[in-house]
Amino acid sequence: MRAWLPLAAILSLVALSAQAASLRIAAVTGSAGACHALEAGAPAGETAYFRLLETRLGRDILTCPVVDRAAAAQALASGAVDIAVLDPAAYALVKAKTRAILTVRPIGGLNRIPVVVATKATGPVPDLAALRGKSVVFGGSAQAALAVPRQALADQGAGPGFFSREDVAADANAAAARLRSGAAGVLALNAADWERLCQGERTQDNSCGDLKVIWRGRPRATLALVVRRDIPDELRFRLIGIHVAMHIEAKPAFAWASSWAPQAAEFEPTEAEALALAAR
């Protein structure tokens, strides 16, 4: 019996090696099962996706059936899978151990641009919640100026009914003028407009010294590819690099891999907390 112990140890090492050499992708199928290689009759897009990852990463790619997104989250956190598509509710269960890396930009959609919420610098305003009941002004009606800030605010619990009144100014400068004059209590701009508003002619200039940023963050992703936080940077960057170009380099693979997002244009990277409900 003792003679077999070294062999058992070796077999364990080989098994661990095989596990490390594979990438296990959670697949929400309604029932749980062991990770396995893609079956011969798998959809062409799924096969193309797995082949692409296998070729580019030099790893076996396995599919791992899970009941639902919550189960995918738990499998990810426990190390049973390496990557899963999660929603905010599922992510909340495992946020200490996992992070978002990629989401999908829809056709005609913008980058998930940051939003800045500001008030006049006078007076203490500790956080976004303290702005309830004040009036807000946006810096224009374009998607980046109105829809994006509105979405970001709604994600933080400041959706319809949170502010006493919503105004839409012609542009960021007009919106800032309304805040400064007291016609509005809160200014909500996308970060690019805020940067242009505050950029002085000289490096040391700051045209927004009289304003105070209360909150800054991106609209929350609705779904994202999530990995464990301890994933090596190399693997994370390679996954991002492969995915962001997939709509160009491997269209059938992209169509399948992004099928969880409507009207998918391309994968785009995310910050770690892209699915988090809390302020970022």
Partner: peptide
């Protein structure tokens, strides 16, 4: 190439 693209995009 994949790392450069992924790291810069991130």
């Amino acid at each position: 190439i994949d790392i450069v693209r992924g790291a810069m995009a991130a």
